[in-house]
Design a protein around this nucleic acid. Structure first.
Length: 422
RNA sequence: GCGGCCGUGGCGAAGUGGUUAACGCACCGGAUUGUGGUUCCGGCACGCGUGGGUUCGAUCCCCACCGGUCGCCCCA
C-alpha cells in the first residue's frame, strides 16, 4: 500500500454512488415542492466568517477547523458547516432586495471538521441543508421542521424522533444565562473542569454535560423555558401549534442546546431510534438565527434553517433495512468470435447504444463461454452472438437469456428485433 | 484531543515463535476446439497495516507510527 486516503475521508465506490444519487434526487425534488432553490458557495471562506458566524467559543471554531494560509497571506478555512456561507452570500448579493421573500435556499456539499473519526463522523462529510431568510413567522419554523422530517420520510424511514426546544430571544437568553451562573456558581468546585470553563464561556452547555449529569445541582437547574419573555413564549407556542396542525409529533426537551452560537428561539434535532445505532444518533439539526445576518455585516434580518448529514442518513437507512439500490441490468451483451466479428460487434454495440439500449461487450478476449458468463452476471436480457459463419451470411444469433430462446436473423434487423422483443 | 479493542489474499475468515499461511465467496482455466446460470477437477498471498527491535529464526513477542472501530468531548 503506497499512498493511503487521508484520515477521516472515504471513497464512494460505484455501488454506493448509486444510493447517493437517489438520495440527492429525492432531496432536490423535495426542495422544489417546498419551493427552495439551490445555492452553491465556495468550499473555503475567509476564516473570520466562521469566527464571527459560527462563534468564537464553539468547539468547531476552537479546535475543529481546517485553516490554512494561502500564498497571498490570507487565512482561509474549509467550511465546517453551510449556514455561515449562505448568510455571507445573502448579504454580499443583497438578496434582501429581491422581490421574492423570504429567500428560500438549499445547498448540498462536503463540509470539513478536524475531529477524531468514528462511524458517522468523518473529517469530510456531506451536508444537505436549507435556509429560509427574511421571515420571523412561526409558520416558517414549522415549514423547515416539516421539510427536515420529510427528507427522511420520503426515503421510507420510520424510527425518527423530533426533539424541540426554544432558546428564546436575546433578552430571554441573557436572563437564563444569568440564572445559570447564579445557580452553578456555589457548586463550581464540585463540577468537572470542562464545566468550570463552560460556566464562564457558555453556561448553556453545562446542561448537557455527561460527567456532571448526576450532580444534585443539575436536577433543579434553571430551564430556559422558564425564562422566556412574553414574545419568545408566544413564538414557541405558535411554532408548536403549527406543528400540531400538520400532525407532526415532537418532544420538547429543554436540555437541547445546539453547538453553534447563532441560534435563537426554535432549535430542533432529529434522531434515529433504530436499533444498531451507536452513540451518534443525531441525524440532523437546525434552528432559528435572528442575529447572524447582522453579525456578519448585513441588515437586521432573521432566518431559520437546518442541515442533515447524508452519511448518517445512509446509516439510518441501513439500520432500518431500507435499500435504494436499483438493478443494474444490461439490455444486450454482444458476444463475438474471431477478428472479423469483433468489428461487426463494435458496429452493432454502437448502433444499439445510439438506439437507447444499455449494451456492452467483451474487451478481454475471453472465450465464448466466458463471454456468456459475463452476459449472465450483468443480467443482460439478450446475448447477441456473432462468429465467422454469421459474418459470412450477414446474420446474428439473438438469444433471450431468461429462457434460452434463440433466433438467427439478418444483422441489420437486430435493432428492430430487440425493440419488439423476440 | 483522551481511553479501550482491532489490522491476515478482491471480500469474509482460521492459524502458529521454526519446512508448502486452513477454509468459504469471488475470479481464472479445464471437463464440453462456437452458447450462460448447475456439477466436478485444477489454479489463485515471494505474503500476514508500515517501520524498527528482541531472537539462531517472527504473521504470531516488544516499541513507534499509520489506519479502523467503540466510548468520552462535541456534533451532522
Amino acid at each position: 500500500m503506497n499512498i493511503h486516503i487521508p484520515r477521516g475521508t472515504e471513497d464512494l465506490l460505484p455501488e454506493q454512488t448509486k444510493t447517493w444519487q437517489i438520495i440527492e434526487d429525492t432531496l432536490k425534488q423535495l426542495s422544489e415542492r417546498y419551493h427552495y432553490h439551490e445555492i452553491r458557495t465556495p468550499m473555503f471562506e475567509r476564516t473570520e466568517l466562521f469566527q464571527r458566524g459560527v462563534g468564537d467559543t464553539t468547539d468547531i471554531v476552537q479546535k475543529e477547523m481546517y485553516t490554512f494560509t494561502d500564498r497571498g497571506g490570507r487565512s482561509l478555512t474549509l467550511r465546517p458547516e453551510g449556514t455561515a456561507s449562505v448568510a455571507r452570500s445573502y448579504v454580499q448579493n443583497k438578496m434582501h432586495g429581491n422581490p421574492e421573500q423570504p429567500t428560500k435556499l438549499y445547498y448540498l456539499g462536503p463540509m470539513f471538521r478536524y475531529e477524531r473519526p468514528q462511524q458517522g463522523r468523518t473529517r469530510q462529510f456531506t451536508q444537505f441543508g436549507i435556509e429560509a431568510i427574511g421571515s420571523a413567522d412561526p409558520a416558517i419554523d414549522a415549514e423547515v421542521i416539516a421539510f427536515a422530517m420529510d427528507c427522511y420520510q420520503d426515503l421510507g424511514l420510520k424510527s425518527l424522533k423530533l426533539v424541540l426546544n426554544s432558546l428564546g430571544d436575546h433578552e430571554s437568553r441573557e436572563a437564563h444565562r444569568q440564572a445559570l451562573v447564579d445557580h452553578f456558581k456555589p457548586h463550581e468546585d464540585e463540577l468537572c473542569s470542562d464545566c468550570q470553563m463552560r460556566l464562564e464561556q457558555n453556561p448553556l452547555r453545562l446542561l448537557d454535560c455527561k460527567v456532571d449529569q448526576d450532580h444534585p445541582s443539575m436536577q433543579n437547574a434553571p430551564s430556559i423555558l422558564d425564562y422566556l419573555n412574553d414574545y419568545s413564549q408566544q413564538y414557541f407556542i405558535d411554532v408548536k401549534k403549527h406543528l400540531d396542525a400538520m400532525g407532526i409529533d415532537y418532544v420538547v426537551d429543554d436540555a437541547l442546546v445546539r453547538g453553534l452560537d447563532y441560534y435563537t428561539h426554535t432549535a430542533f434535532e432529529i434522531m434515529s431510534e433504530a436499533d444498531g445505532f451507536g452513540s451518534i444518533t443525531t441525524l440532523s439539526g437546525g434552528g432559528r438565527y435572528n442575529g447572524l445576518i447582522q453579525d456578519i455585516g448585513g441588515p437586521e434580518i432573521s432566518g431559520i434553517g437546518f442541515a442533515l448529514s447524508i452519511e448518517r442518513l445512509i446509516m439510518a437507512l441501513e439500520a432500518e433495512g431500507i435499500s435504494l439500490d436499483s438493478e443494474d441490468e444490461l439490455d444486450c451483451y454482444v458476444i463475438t468470435m474471431g477478428d472479423e466479428a469483433k468489428f461487426a460487434g463494435s458496429k452493432l454495440v454502437y448502433q444499439l447504444r445510439k438506439a437507447g439500449f444499455i449494451v456492452d461487450q467483451d474487451y478481454l478476449d475471453k472465450k465464448m463461454k466466458a463471454q456468456f458468463k459475463a452476459a449472465d452476471r450483468y443480467q443482460a436480457s439478450y446475448a447477441i452472438v456473432i462468429g465467422e459463419s454469421e459474418i459470412e451470411q450477414g446474420v446474428a444469433n439473438i438469444k433471450r437469456l431468461e429462457d434460452g430462446e434463440q433466433k438467427t436473423i439478418a444483422i441489420d434487423d437486430v435493432k428492430a428485433q430487440i425493440e419488439q422483443g423476440l
